[in-house]
Structures are given as structure tokens and as C-alpha cells.
Amino acid sequence: MTGETVMFWVLAPLTVFAAVGMLLVKKAVHSAILLAFVMIALAIFYIAQDAPFLGIVQIVVYTGAVMMLFLFILMLVGVDSSDSLVETIKGLRGVAITTSLAFAAALTSLIARAEFGQEPLGLVSANANGNVEGIANLIFRQYVWAFEVISALLITAALGAMVLAHSPKSSEARLSQRARSVARFRGASIGTAAGLPGSGVFARHNAVDVPALLPDGKPSDLSISSVLAERGDVQETKRYALDGLPKLDEEDK
């Protein structure tokens, strides 16, 4: 019973649980945290298998950079946008789980059947000059061509991401203040020439997420930021206005 064995039997079930949990939790953020756990566990496994360089890279690149990227995008898309776990495509989930179980069963039974022809050698001799030096030796000698190609791939991917994420809006010419002013007065309606109505219900509530009330008591869509409306973060004006107005009238009397 070596330390590695103990570590494995403690950490492996946890890793599997975390992986399964990834599929079961509703919120994407929770999935991301569980994935980060799996990756750190894997890094530990790497280090345990005499691959310290990969273990460090795993933590730095994956758990650090890649997971940060995931979280960043999650923030962008909406951090609390949670999935409904109800399956919409009929029969898909059942088939998927069955197939996966069969897949896993076949894979494990194949591994069990496999004869490796030799006892596990360990990397003591290979790592004699240090793990990083050994890997560098391979990468910059035997695999230097693949290394160069993959660096080109990385650059291309970065460019591709920039192109894809590029918003065409920013390329439009910005109007000058004078042009905006002219456009406002020459526009379809002069009603908004003096500026859009401010948000909030004066005297009762004042906030950017509450639309202003028009004289007839209806909320004005123009008074709030379209971004908030798009995100669905607009508060009901009713709570502050429509319920209260009749009461005010009565108080006057």
C-alpha cells in the first residue's frame, strides 16, 4: 500500500463524482468549478506518474487560462443562465446513456484484456536528466516540425477567434456631435429633440431599471437603457406608480 495507491483510491472516486456532477448540476458555473476540480485531480495524477511538467502545465494552462476563459465567456453570456435539465429531444438521453455505458464497458473490458507485454517500466531512467529536459529533447528534436506546425495552428486559432468575436458595429463611423444634433432635430419626430426621458419614477422611486411614467400613467420604453430591457432586468413600474396613483387622487379629495 504505497502513497500513490492511497492517493489514487481517494482521489479517483472523487474525480468521477465531480465529472458526473458536471452533468447533473443546473448552472454552468457549477459545472465549471467541478471541471476545475477534475483538472486539478488529473494534474495530481500526472505528477504521481512522473510527469511533473505536464502536471504544472495542466494547472497553469487548463485550470488557470482555459477555465478562466470559460468563466469569462460564462460571465459574458450570463452567469446565472441555467439549463433546464428536461430533455427536449425524445429518447436522446436514454440512448446516450446506454451507448455511453456500453462504450465504457467495452473500453474497460478491452483494457482488462489487453496484454502490455511487459511490466510497467516507470520513468526513472527517462527522467534521469529531469522531466522538463527530457520533454524538451523530444519536442525540439524529434517533434520540432510538429511543434512548429502546432504553433502556427495556435496563432491561426487566435486570429480566427479575433475575427469571429469581432463586432462589425465598431467599424461604423462615429457621428460628430454636430451631426447628431442636426439628426435629432431633423428626425422623424421632434418629440425627442430635447433628449430622451430620464428613468425612474420621481418622488416614489428613482433607479435606472424603472421606466419613467408618461402623463397618462404608462411606462415609457424610451426612458430605460435598451441593454437592461434586453437582459430582462427592467423593474415593473406598476409597483411604484399604477397602484399608487389612484390613492393619491383619493388623498387629494
Binding site: A19, L23, A96, S100
Partner: peptide, 12 residues
């Protein structure tokens, strides 16, 4: 096992 779990996740 991890690979299979990932595969299920991609699908479901």
C-alpha cells in the same frame, strides 16, 4: 470512465 462521462455530457 471519464471519457464516457464526457461523451454523455456532450450529448445530453
Amino acid at each position: 470512465i471519464l471519457f464516457s462521462i464526457g461523451a454523455v455530457g456532450v450529448v445530453v
